[in-house]
Write a protein that binds this DNA or RNA. Structure first.
Lengths: 156, 156
DNA sequence: GCTTTGACTTCGAGTACTTGAAGTTCCTAG
DNA sequence: CTAGGAACTTCAAGTACTCGAAGTCAAAGC
């Protein structure tokens, strides 16, 4: 069907793979493309399906960083249009990726707290079901304390 | 203007105070009330403004916790409704919470992989900026390998 | 060769807030 | 007592996805 490229092996990805790689859902990738935040992606000749290459992935990663730092889509569009995107802005890329790294770390911390909170609540309801009011009371207090911790972590 | 409280001090709060105490914006409190996630709040007789008491605050705290764990509003509504039923609804509560726990665990796995990916991308751009094409190539390959891993994890 | 399965496509509607407009009401100060 | 401003009210529209329906395309099984 498709003849093999003679020289470089060009890595290509489906939208699902691109989504897994960049952390953005496939629906969001389509949405971003439709509103012009990311450049139009190439299509498979016969299928019409989106085909992402490494360059696309770098671009999406960059946009994902902008989105993660709380930039609105209209601002992102402007920023991307102003040519801040691409290898020439490597320094800027690193800075935003570092920011993204911090955000992911914070997200991970919050996730752990939430997991503990949910686990606590499950214990609580088990205690209630077992009629152990003393233990239920204790766990309820613990959950409340943890809720405060979650809120504190969320503000950071 | 000084009210003569007969016995106990009844704590009452404006929507702004309730927002500050529970961590949810005032607009969200109004929204949650309008869709029935929290019970209708009492109103000032002459002003028509919302007046929150301690019980309201407890309920909102609880809903804020559910929201923080990423639960949908319709699930929250069910959950809160069941909460008033006491121990008899414990089974359903546990089921909902266990579902939430699984979701959070999967999210955590994805997060770790994404952190590694971003770290790799930072190293990559450092290498590009330094003109170290060999290292850049190497890191690019590693990123691709990690991409496969993320792809595998995404299927679970 | 045909059919089924599954991933992709677009498009329009739904979700969970969020913001803005326009209109009260509360409070403070002159 | 009255004027001004902050804070509240509702309601409508905007935002940034997110989902479901209906259709297309390609490889695997019979």
């Amino acid at each position: 069907m498709v003849e093999v490229s003679a020289e470089t092996t060009r890595h290509e990805y489906t939208i699902k793979e691109a989504a897994a790689l960049t952390g953005l859902p496939a629906s969001t990738l389509r949405y971003y493309e439709s509103i012009g935040v990311i450049a139009p992606v190439g299509r498979g000749v016969s299928s019409g399906h989106r085909v992402y290459d490494e360059e696309d992935l770098d671009q999406i990663m960059w946009v994902a960083c902008l989105a993660a730092t709380g930039m609105s889509v209209s601002d992102m569009r402007t920023y991307v249009a102003n040519g801040h995107l691409g290898p020439s802005a490597a320094g800027e890329q690193v800075e935003l990726l570092t920011q993204q790294q911090r955000r992911l770390a914070s997200e991970a911390r919050q996730l752990v707290l939430r997991q503990r909170y949910v686990a606590l609540k499950i214990d609580y309801w088990h205690a209630v079901a077992a009629g152990d009011d003393g233990r239920a009371e204790l766990l309820s207090g613990e959950a409340r304390h943890l809720a405060d911790e979650i809120k504190r972590a969320g503000r950071s």
